[in-house]
């Protein structure tokens, strides 16, 4: 039910985009106001959210250690799993952010025939996650060509790698296809695995449907119902130069694509999609695990009541003396 509401929301957004694309009177709103507003909300919201995290103190060293500590010189330290210097933390973070290393550790617990537990390798989530995120990144980078004249070298290079397959005599960008495959797989595991379905809120389906809609409309625009790319680029360059150009000759399907992207961007800072920023700021991962070697300072450390030795000795002095224990005051 909740999932259907999410689907309805995204379908509604797509429909609104389509209508906006059909009606010339609304083009100013859908081609200029909405995208620019969305970009502004995204940038301001993202920075605001990350700032709200960054300004919050990290009172304690809480690194999760997943390997041997630095101790005796002849015991080999796991520098990535238990980093004691900044360079190792950077390597650990690179592993998390680029390769999803923690997710790669995943094992699945199972109940055996006699009721006892067993464990098996389970890399599907990792695979789908890598597939999805990396292809999404490729797709985003490829779209940079709409914002630069001429298109940056990195974009052209990427297009060559990404589009080495040909479809109907034009390059077939694998990233777009893999993005769709990744999102479909992530959706399927969310509804097929009972536990994952159980923990899902309606809102968890919104980004899945939004991104699926974006990928699907993008693929259709490229291979099935192409739109006037030159017109699109004049519009996007209008955003960049803050010199809005009202598009002509752009299909309503493109407006579906654009509206979905706008909503995704505007909603991003208020959603769980902020894990994109969170992964950089997670204290269990980005701290050095050297809290006995160097003191970690807590900015709000405040004095507390303690039961002092003097109070303790006052209470037990006679018994301490009776037991032959030294005392400070006779």
């Amino acid at each position: 039910m909740q999932m259907l509401i999410a689907l309805a929301i995204v379908a509604g957004i797509a429909a609104i985009g389509y209508i906006g694309g059909m009606m010339p009177a609304l083009q100013f709103l859908f081609a200029i106001v909405l995208p620019l507003l969305a970009i502004a909300i995204f940038l301001v919201g993202f920075v605001w959210k990350v700032w709200s995290w960054a300004k919050t103190p990290v009172p304690f060293c809480i690194a999760t250690t997943v390997g041997q500590q630095k101790s005796l010189p002849w015991i080999k330290q796991d520098k990535i799993g238990n980093p004691s210097d900044t360079a190792s933390v950077v390597r650990r973070m690179a592993g998390e952010i680029l390769l999803f290393r923690s997710l790669f550790r995943n094992v699945k617990a199972e109940i055996g025939p006699n009721g006892w537990l067993g464990y098996s390798v389970e890399k599907w989530l990792w695979l789908f996650a890598v597939l999805f995120h990396w292809s999404f990144l490729f797709v985003v980078i490829r779209h940079l060509r709409f914002f630069f004249v001429p298109s940056p070298a990195i974009v052209r290079g990427l297009e060559k790698i990404d589009g080495f397959l040909l479809f109907d005599l034009q390059p077939l960008f694998l990233s777009g296809i893999l993005l769709l495959v990744g999102i479909a797989a992530l959706y399927l595991r969310r509804i097929v695995i009972p536990q994952v379905r159980y923990i899902s809120h309606g809102i968890d389906f919104v980004p899945l449907f939004l991104i699926a809609g974006i990928a699907l409309s993008g693929i259709l625009l490229r291979y099935v119902w192409p739109t006037d790319v030159v017109a699109v680029k004049s519009m996007t360059m209008g955003w960049v130069t803050l010199n809005p150009v009202l598009p002509t000759n752009i299909s309503p399907l493109f407006f579906v694509h654009l509206t979905l992207v706008s909503v995704l961007l505007a909603w991003f800072p208020f959603s769980k999609l902020m894990h994109m920023g969170g992964v950089f700021l997670s204290p269990t991962r980005n701290q050095r695990a050297n809290s006995r070697e160097y003191r970690h300072v807590n900015p709000w450390n405040y004095p507390v009541h303690t039961h002092t030795y003097e109070e303790y000795e006052d209470e037990f002095r006679d018994r301490m003396k009776g037991a032959g224990l030294p005392v400070d005051k006779e």
């Binding site: 995290w53 536990q195 994952v196």
Partner: peptide
């Protein structure tokens, strides 16, 4: 505590409910 612990804020905001933790 939201003002004192970055961990609390980041952990509240970042979970995507992927379920990798469930059977751990």
């Amino acid at each position: 505590r939201l003002q004192r612990y970055r961990s609390f804020r980041v952990f509240m905001d970042s979970c995507v409910r992927c379920g990798a933790c469930a059977d751990k």
